Structures are given as structure tokens and as C-alpha cells.
Simulated scan of single mutants.
Amino acid sequence: MKIIVDADACPKSVLQICRKLAGNHALKVWTVASFNHNIQSDHHVIVGNASQEADMRLMNLAQTGDIAVTQDWGLAAMLLGKGVRCLNPLGREFSNQTIEFLLEEREIKAKYRRSGGRTKGPHKRKTEDDRQFEVLLQRMLDEV
């Protein structure tokens, strides 16, 4: 079992939490990011900046029972299909029960933006987000 982080858009505080909790459980943390990012990690995979390149590499690294950290709902859907538990940096777990709704919502919002509409971006990160992420990751690791 390992923790795999989609590090292209992952906050540094989340990476630190992953490393700390993985160390407590003798697990490795793998990070995957394009060469445009400067990520310090013992197990870091650098990919090009082509569309979906990091996602494909993440999929190839992932195995059943792993934990993945990503903000990408599409990637989370594919990882769930492989038996990987997924959570986002805000401390919310993706599940087979909710992923279809999230993907439908993503498509509706994308269609709206293509037609000239505007949607809200993510809210500013708070310390509470880090705490919530740490609690969920710790719970996932304790369940193993």
C-alpha cells in the first residue's frame, strides 16, 4: 500500500501531512507532477506537461488498496474503478456513490462556461481544510 499524490495542484501543507502520516505507518508517498513543478519527494515522478500525462502516470502507479490524493474528479473516477481510495486536499473522500453526480456536475458547468457563463472558482484554503484532510487520511490509514 502507498499514498499517491497528484502533485500538480496539491497544496504543500497537504504533501507535508501525507509525508507525516505515511511515516507513522511505514508507507511510501509517491508524487506525480509535470516538470513545471518543483516537488521535493523521495518518490517523485516527473512527467511532461501534455494534457492528462500526469493522470495516466498516476493510473499506472496505482494498485488496489492504495490511497490517492487528487482534485481531479475524472481521475478519481478511474482510480475508484481500480479499487483505490481517493480523497481531495479539502478532506473529502470520493466514493462510488457520489462520483457520478460530481462528473455530471462537472459536465454541466463546463457546458455553461463554453456558452459564455462564469462559475465560481475554489475558495481560499483555510487551516480547517488541512485539519479536515489530516483527520480523513488518518481514518483511512487506521482502517487498513
Score class of each variant (00 low, 15 high):
Val32His: 05
Glu105Asp: 11
Phe133Asn: 09
Pro89Ala: 03
Phe133Thr: 05
Phe133Asp: 07
Cys18Trp: 03
Ala22Asn: 04
Thr31Ser: 14
Ile99Glu: 09
Ala50Pro: 00
His37Tyr: 15
Gly116Met: 05
Asp55Ala: 07
Pro11Gln: 10
Cys18Gly: 02
Asn36Tyr: 07
Thr119Phe: 03
Asp130Glu: 09
Cys10Trp: 06
Asp130Ala: 04
Arg114Ile: 05
Asn49Thr: 13
Ala77Gln: 05
Leu79Asn: 04
Asp130Thr: 00
Cys18Gln: 05
Glu107Asn: 11
Leu90Gly: 02
Lys20Val: 04
Asn60Leu: 13
Val84Pro: 13
Arg114Cys: 10
His37Leu: 14
Arg114Leu: 14
Leu27Trp: 04
Met56Asp: 11
Ser34Lys: 05
Ser95Leu: 06
Asn49Gln: 10
Ser41Gly: 06
Asp42Arg: 03
Met56Gln: 11
Ser95Arg: 12
Leu27Gln: 08
Ile108Trp: 02
Glu53Trp: 08
Ala54Leu: 09
Lys12Ile: 14
Ile108Met: 08
Glu143His: 09
Ser34Trp: 00
Gly74Lys: 01
Asn60Glu: 15
Val5Lys: 07
Gly121Asn: 02
Ala7Ser: 15
Met56Arg: 10
Arg106Gln: 02
Met56Ser: 04
Thr31Tyr: 09
Cys86Ile: 08
Lys2Phe: 00
Ser13Ala: 13
Arg131Val: 10
Glu93Met: 12
Leu79Cys: 12
Asp129Glu: 01
Leu27Arg: 03
His123Trp: 01
Gly81Arg: 07
Glu105Gln: 15
His44Ala: 14
Glu134Trp: 02
Ile46Gly: 00
Val45Asn: 01
His37Pro: 00
Ala33Arg: 05
Ala54Cys: 13
Gly83Ala: 06
Lys12His: 11
Arg125Tyr: 10
Ile99Ser: 01
Glu93Ile: 06
Pro89His: 00
Thr64Ile: 04
Ala22Leu: 00
Gly83Asn: 07
Asn49Met: 11
